[in-house]
Design a protein around this nucleic acid. Structure first.
Lengths: 352, 352
DNA sequence: GCGATTTCGCAAACCGATTTGCCGCGGCTA
DNA sequence: TAGCCGCGGCAAATCGGTTTGCGAAATCGC
């Protein structure tokens, strides 16, 4: 049996070969064609040293004729920068994160960076594994929203010069790790103030689980305090960030001797659950009970009634993280940690 | 002025240095410490040649003591594989794609691959730019859902040995580009059959824009034909995949002399718009008009009434694409193009 | 018109791994 | 005991770029 000659060109197809994968064009090929050394080609490409005009033109022509594109990996090896960033998040499937990722990539992509997105499912083990993996891949920087990684866990990477920015609040105590976080405290305060003004002092709160950051509950308490309303502990019920948890918490509230006129829920999903519970009892939103959520997830305007909520600006958050990272990666910023707070504005729809 | 000694260790902190970024540990360091050549270290790592047990132990101990982790970039340069794949999609912010991306990454991540996600916003220019960019970065393979790139556009890359799989249907005519696509025709047929059975022959269709693939409309027509129902062209109205477009199309249908009893919409967003239009007229779903969507987007079960729809299995699609790619990247498959059709099942909720 | 400086290009070292080719050694066969 | 083979290890080449050091030529200042 005779194998087909792999070098055969298709009749009439000019350059396209059928089976041969043509050898990659390298900088040497360009140099040879232009009649210069590869050093000169490199300088034409990078502009790091002057090249005489006619020489430059010869080189550029050779590049164009050969359709030469430099090998990023070889370049990275020498320059020690990969032009890759990593974004470590719990789950791209959670609708908050795609928007954040988009903000991150848009900001960095502009400067020629590509990014790895790592889904940790909020598992500490995964979070750590990804950080070491992308470090081995020599990413230029890491942005992470992590629930379990502490400053000491990333100490080694930071000391080796890896820029890290923490999204959310957990890693706040390292002097070289920047932080960007939604200003949840203020957002929650604004939301609660709105409810107090519109519906009077009888405002309850469905909080998240105890292990999460308490900023939203804090904001709720501050608003009450500022309005000189006493905090009634029977009006603060813990949910678990889920729809079912929100419904359960709402039922508890409705069973209180004096049920609330309005409820500030720590996220939209729980607000949706609360909505379920309210309708279950034959009551109406917002006429009998007003509901206010947090995050402004994609479907917040699709439910009936459309949810009044606090917009958690995912896109801006991602972009801010990218910018902090870029400062350290490319602009040589080496100073102390910076903290960026993203303001969260109230979106008034119909549920409150 | 005297600069602080960058080599200073913090008192009592063992190995952690304050300002010095310690030189990276290389394979030579390990070799030196273990008293062998770096060749041997490499063989311990890869297992490609036998190493005597006690030598291996010495090397492993050195690796552990130095906390050595090989440099992926250097490795990639030599082995000519980056262990990176690219996923080119319109927009990660569109809720279908995060799920698909997750399926893709889960499948490939298992084998040690990381992936670049590229958002093209369906711009041809972006699609092409990303493909050449990631090719320069030497990704091992590319999966793309593209609306504007044709086989001839990627010809050059394929010929150079870059595995490509097309998600959706556009690049179907290249003998080396695998394809994975939802079996929309069948899904649409099933949906329409369901409506015919439950609501009789008076079933309309809101189609997508003309430029998209007509598979869903085709399925609708097939189901009618199979049930010997005449296709009434006044019951097929074109939407434009948006909520507003769906509403507009629905108004048109409701204005017909004999309006439909049930409507199959080519996607969920248009079904939602149709819902708007129906309620606008004071009619009820499904009692007056039944609505059926396509895709089963995240919020399909959240609207009132919950949407009956066809599940477009994003996760499976991503995973299938990853597997096709992996076959070519790592398992050396070099055969002809394969086409994988993902079946789309009906999800019956309350709108039909 | 002459030394000083700048411009332009080349050869070689370098980045950090993998892979090839070779060699010494010990055990086995004939 | 000569010849052969497999094992285990090393030196050197390789991947494809960037960067450094050097020297020849061109330009400048006076």
């Amino acid at each position: 049996m005779v194998l087909e000659d792999p070098g055969l060109t298709r009749p009439g197809s000019g350059e396209v070969k059928r089976f041969a994968r043509t050898r990659r064009i390298t900088i040497d090929d360009v140099a040879a064609r232009a009649g210069v050394s590869k050093t000169t080609v490199s300088h034409v490409l990078s502009g790091k040293r002057p090249v005489r005009a006619d020489t430059r033109r010869r080189v550029e022509r050779a590049i164009h004729e050969l359709d030469y594109r430099p090998d990023f990996i070889a370049r990275s090896l020498r320059t020690r920068q990969s032009h890759i960033a990593a974004l470590v998040i719990p789950d791209i499937t959670n609708p908050f994160f795609p928007v954040m990722a988009r903000g991150f990539e848009d900001a960095l992509g502009q400067s020629g960076y590509r990014t790895f997105i790592c889904n940790t499912d909020s598992l500490r083990e995964q979070e750590l594994a990804f950080v070491t993996d992308v470090a081995s891949r020599r990413v230029d920087g890491i942005a992470m929203v992590s629930h379990h990684v502490h400053a000491r866990d990333v100490e080694g990477f930071v000391q080796n010069g890896m820029p890290i920015v923490s999204i959310g609040s957990l890693i706040v105590d390292h002097p070289l790790v920047d932080v960007v976080m939604g200003d949840d405290e203020r957002g929650a305060r604004d939301a609660t103030e709105f409810l107090l003004e519109r519906y009077g002092p009888n405002v309850a709160h469905i909080s998240g689980s105890a292990e999460g950051p308490p900023a939203r509950e804090t904001g709720y308490r501050e608003a009450l305090a500022a309005a000189s309303v006493r905090v009634r502990s029977d009006l603060i019920v813990e949910g678990d960030w889920t729809r079912a948890g929100g419904a359960e918490a709402m039922r508890t509230l409705l069973d209180r001797p004096s049920p609330p006129r309005a409820v500030f829920c720590a996220n939209d999903l729980m607000a949706l659950g609360a909505l379920d519970a309210v309708e279950e009892r034959g009551l109406r939103v917002p006429d009998d009970v007003a509901l206010l959520g947090y995050d402004d997830v994609e479907w917040a305007s699709l439910v009936r009634p459309p949810l009044t909520t606090v917009l958690n600006p995912a896109y801006d958050t991602g972009r801010a993280a990218a910018n902090l990272l870029f400062d350290r990666i490319a602009r040589g910023y080496e100073g102390a940690r910076r903290v960026v707070r993203i303001t969260c504005d109230l979106v008034v729809r119909e549920s409150a």
